[in-house]
Simulated assay, not measured.
Amino acid sequence: MRAWLAVIIGLALGGGLAWWLAQEHEHPAGQRRPDSPRPGAQVDASPALYRWRDDAGVLQITERPPKDRRYERIDRDTPAGIRVSGDGVDTQE
């Protein structure tokens, strides 16, 4: 009987701890949560990569767009499934 009581108390304490940790707690004035952005910092809702070609014609993929070239913006959050895209070169004969 005591083992069941210990199990029930353990489950109640574990559930209470999980509930407590899931709550949003107020922070003292002037402090912010470590995972929150700095005030005034702009957060990109959808981070992207940029695809472009350099002077030698080599394909480059960077996190920042080039200043003096054409580029294509690529979303990092791709939809589920397979998506194939290429340079537009037809390899079929």
Rank of each mutant, 00 (worst) to 15 (best):
M1A: 13
Q23F: 04
G88I: 11
A56C: 02
D54I: 01
R69Y: 09
W4H: 14
E72D: 11
L59W: 03
A45M: 12
R32T: 02
Q42W: 02
G30Y: 03
I9D: 03
S85C: 06
D44I: 10
D90G: 02
L11A: 13
D68Q: 15
L5D: 07
R69Q: 15
A48T: 13
V7M: 10
P66D: 00
W19N: 04
A18L: 15
R32D: 03
E63R: 12
A80I: 12
L13N: 02
K67T: 12
E24L: 07
P28C: 11
G81W: 08
E63A: 14
P37E: 09
V89G: 01
R69F: 03
G14L: 14
R33T: 01
V43P: 01
R83T: 15
R53G: 01
K67A: 14
D54H: 01
A48L: 06
H25I: 06
R73E: 11
A80L: 08
L59M: 06
R53E: 07
W4V: 09
L49I: 04
V84E: 06
D35L: 00
A12T: 05
G86E: 04
E93A: 15
A56T: 09
D55H: 08
Q31M: 14
Q92V: 12
P37M: 08
S46L: 12
I74M: 11
I9E: 00
A22Q: 10
A18H: 09
V89W: 06
E26A: 15
P34Q: 08
D55G: 02
W19Y: 13
P28Q: 13
R38C: 02
H25E: 10
W4G: 15
R53D: 01
R51A: 15
E26V: 12
R83Y: 15
A3S: 12
D77I: 10
L5H: 07
D87Y: 04
L49E: 01
L5I: 06
R2Q: 10
V84T: 13
R76D: 03
E26F: 05
A18S: 09
D87H: 03
T62S: 15
P28M: 15
G86A: 03
I82A: 11
I9G: 04
M1C: 07
G88M: 02
P47Q: 10
